[in-house]
């Protein structure tokens, strides 16, 4: 496969995954805003999310003050910066368009239709319609995944697409956790109130019922974090993402990728053989931070080994 084609497939999947996770992140706030919380707490929650996405400075450049609505619009609809959901949808479609000869017609039509439909959404929508937007993003992401898994040949095209999906998902899951841990109200000091707030996070990630089933416990921040990091049977879980990353990277291994495979193996082993308490001994936010740095390193190495236009000279 052409390196450039692999690059487009990888980014197509990353952007789609990012759009979905942004929607889930926003959804979490939307649900939080329905809880009886002080207005400052709500704003602090949004602030923490912007920080975890690395978009707090950009937001403040464009907006004098932080309001829930402004933050929603900024993350969902703003076409001026590349991090918004609408821009992610467009980027996914642009990447798909560049390789429409490699993906199936069904995939292309699904992504293209998603893009065409996205024009209907913007910040002038009534607030009541915004929940619908979030549901639409999730639905289109589900649909695209289904079409991909239902129609794409099991070859490199699928492997690179999945590499993009899972590196992005691992990144996003840790960001969601990080945002919650950075939220000043979220540090395990107000157990009852926090239980409902973390339950909201689980619901936004479609993981609430699973938590009940596998943890059989009341919702508490540490257990939620442990589940989302350590379980290899949870599709949103970081451990699961690393399973997939390792398997798909192994499937596309080439002459220069040995070190990248070693690093993904090492990272995976932490989750596979490590203990949550030991990994997070220095504090959960610190661990999440370090993990994200390792993911970035992995992303850069994947680009260099497989996606960059190297002629071997």
């Amino acid at each position: 496969m052409l390196s450039r084609t692999a690059d487009h497939l990888y980014w197509m999947s990353r952007y789609l995954e990012r759009a979905e996770n942004m929607a889930r992140m926003i959804d979490a706030h939307h649900r939080l805003s329905l809880l009886p919380r002080a207005p400052e707490a709500v704003l602090q929650g949004w602030q923490a999310t912007l920080v975890s996405l690395g978009m707090d400075d950009l937001f403040l450049e464009q907006h004098a003050t932080l309001t829930p609505l402004a933050a929603f619009d900024f993350l969902a609809f703003d076409r001026e910066h590349s991090g918004s959901i609408l821009r992610c949808v467009r980027a996914a479609r642009e990447n798909a368009r560049a390789v429409r000869g490699t993906i199936t017609s069904d995939m292309w039509e699904t992504l293209n239709t998603t893009y065409l439909e996205s024009h209907a959404f913007n910040s002038s929508m009534p607030e009541s319609g915004r929940g619908e937007f979030i549901e639409w993003v999730k639905y289109r992401a589900h649909l695209t995944r289904g079409v991909t898994s239902g129609t794409l040949l099991r070859d490199e095209a699928l492997y690179f697409s999945r590499i993009g999906t899972f590196i992005e998902r691992a990144d996003n899951t840790t960001r969601l956790l990080e945002a919650r841990w950075r939220d000043p109200g979220g540090r395990g000091e107000r157990l009852l109130a926090e239980a409902s707030e973390w339950a909201v996070l689980l619901r936004a990630m479609s993981a609430f019922e699973i938590y009940r089933r596998v943890c059989r416990d009341s919702v508490n921040p540490t257990r939620v974090t442990e589940m989302l990091l350590m379980r290899d049977d949870l599709p949103q879980g970081v451990h699961r993402c690393l399973d997939e990353l390792q398997a798909n990277l192994t499937a596309v291994a080439n002459d220069q990728s040995a070190e990248t495979l070693r690093r993904v193996g090492e990272l995976h082993a932490q989750f596979h053989y490590g203990r949550f308490e030991e990994l997070c001994a220095g504090g959960i936010p610190v661990f999440l931070d370090r993990f994200q740095a390792k993911l970035r390193d992995l992303g850069a190495r994947i680009s260099k080994d497989f996606l960059a236009s190297s002629d071997g000279q």
Binding site: L2, R4, F160
Partner: peptide
């Protein structure tokens, strides 16, 4: 797509010793 051949851009090809190669994930 209809012919089942690679769609390449200029940057995907290079010439070495008067032979044309495309850059793939598994090398030239």
């Amino acid at each position: 797509q209809q012919m089942g051949i690679e769609l390449v851009e200029g940057q995907d090809l290079f010439v070495r010793d008067d032979i044309v190669y495309m850059r793939t994930t598994r090398g030239p």
